[in-house]
Design a binder for these strands. Structure first.
Lengths: 243, 243
DNA sequence: TATAATATGATAGTAATACTATTATATTTG
DNA sequence: CAAATATAATAGTATTACTATCATATTATA
């Protein structure tokens, strides 16, 4: 069903919002013990974990606190997620899956490689809109969690083992899609994967800097990360399009 | 003394190594309760914290384990550092101070802005050499800790308070120095601070990717991060120099 | 050289974290 | 209505991240 819908020429927010309400973002099943989408409690766990991590930060977040907040038991949460690290992997995978969906949806039908890449950069670097709501998941807050906490999901001693288990597949697929778009424009550009990963990681970082270290970035209300990275990428590859 | 030495035209590794052995990298005094450079135990704490964090990772690292390792008492370590977070701030500040020193030393006497920036990029992105040893601090391992753990020093809920206290001054100064060099080449380039911060953060990230996600980078034994970022930056600003 | 100051070590203790285990009680399903 | 399943309640463990106190060793100073 998803594949068919992707070919629809309609590309407005309302249509996409409806689609996002009918499809399910698929994340690696190993992130959870029991699918949180399968029950009311599961959804409440996800919903309120986002609210709570956003509020107090991932480090101070515990299953006990979450249990108290949602009037449920700590041990019940453990039946859904092994530990809070796995929950973070679930949330981040969901986010990248959600973003990938918009990425593919927005660029799939585009013929011109230049415009396609421009649109791809826009989807990845633009702020998450308030109206993007998908059921119990608040994407605006989740986006902020990604900016402030995503690195913690892979800056661990277990990263290689977890990578083998496929916990970062969606993110990697996104980077590869972007990398391929760069190659489509300039097959001789020697660093497409590095440029793609620089965009994904760098975009989060520039948003972090605007929040906490404004002197280290030129991004602000007037200059968007989209503008900065569009300039950066199109000047780096061997094809210019109008600014 | 430092200032005078910076004007010396000599720029070889041996001279710099000797200089680094006579000067002291100054880090924010608030990172420690008692200066670890002031005693034997303090130096052992720093030395072995680097070895241990490198080995087991910052998350699993505790003062108790470190105490056992160096045959000292947990409570004695607490007399030097409030907690392991402050120790990480100390180590990372020291690293950036050490890098800043090399940055200034290598570029200070250069007249041509293009060559100067090229050298700056090289200093920041090149792998830390084994022969760079500075007393009890193993810079090669410390560099690896920076790659794998630096983000954790600022991805916290306390980042704004700690930023006000000056814990990130050295890093910020480095970004600003680089940003100014970019401006010196192209005063009209609109994103010098963003480009500078992208280099600092992006370089660490590309090294991380080569270690753990090689498919997401083009950097490897043949292609260096220096090459990638030199290309990226000089194509982005309005002045090209020979590759 | 005695004494005071300082540094380090040993031991104990606390609150919180990150779970696991067991049993009880709802709720759903066949 | 019984059986299966989901959730709740309670308790317990090992570890972490400290703090406090007291003892002992080392160093500085009068």
């Amino acid at each position: 069903m998803i594949v068919i819908l992707l070919y629809l020429p309609l590309q407005n927010k309302i249509v996409m919002k409806h689609l996002l309400q009918t499809i399910k973002i698929e994340v690696n099943k190993k992130t959870y013990l029991k699918d949180p989408e399968s029950s009311d409690l599961g959804k409440r766990i996800v919903e309120h974990s986002i609210l709570m991590i956003h509020k107090i930060g991932f480090d101070a977040f515990t299953f006990r606190k979450l249990g108290n907040k949602i009037g449920s038991n700590e041990s019940s949460i453990y039946r859904y997620f092994e530990n809070k690290h796995k929950l973070l992997l679930y949330l981040t995978s969901w986010y990248w899956g959600w973003l990938e969906y918009q990425f593919v949806f927005a660029t799939n039908s585009m013929a011109d490689p230049g415009n396609k890449l421009r649109k791809a950069i826009e989807v990845i670097t633009k702020p998450v809109a308030i109206d993007a709501s998908f059921s119990h998941i608040n994407e605006v807050l989740l986006n902020d969690i990604i900016i402030n906490e995503y690195s913690k999901s892979y800056l661990t001693k277990e990263v290689d083992a977890e990578n083998k288990e496929g916990y970062f597949e969606i993110y990697k697929r996104l980077v590869m899609r972007l990398s391929e778009m760069i190659e489509d424009i300039d097959a001789d550009y020697p660093y497409p994967a590095s440029l793609a990963s620089t965009l994904l990681e760098g975009s989060l970082h520039q948003y972090f800097l605007t929040q906490h270290f404004p002197s280290l970035t030129n991004c602000n209300k007037k200059i968007s990360p989209t503008e900065y990275f569009t300039h950066l990428i199109f000047n780096s590859i061997n094809k210019k399009i109008d600014a």
